[in-house]
């Protein structure tokens, strides 16, 4: 089993990293790989094997963009 967990942050912040590590309950006994990716704008992403927990600003903006496009295309067509 892959024991490594990946944590992606926009900026390096030791306090936040510790908080996130303690927040993620499944981390016990597993090593963390910290990556810095400014493109996520804010928040963080945890990658655990093939699951990705996206708490990033970029991810949420992307979700909103999709919802907006879908709603607007339907509303526009109905209009």
């Amino acid at each position: 089993m892959d024991k490594k967990l990946t944590l992606i942050l926009s900026v390096y912040d030791e306090d936040n990293i510790e908080k996130i590590k303690s927040f993620y309950g499944e981390a016990a006994g597993r090593s963390w790989q910290i990556e810095i990716d400014p493109s996520i704008i804010g928040g963080f992403i945890i990658i655990d094997k093939d699951m990705m927990f996206d708490y990033s600003v970029k991810g949420q903006l992307e979700q909103f963009r999709r919802a907006l496009l879908q709603e607007l295309s339907v509303a526009g067509a109905k209009q």
Binding site: D50, M51, M52, F64, A67
Partner: peptide, 12 residues
Amino acid sequence: HYRVAPKVYNIG
């Protein structure tokens, strides 16, 4: 009306 929520993805 938009509610922001984190999302969990299955990735490869």
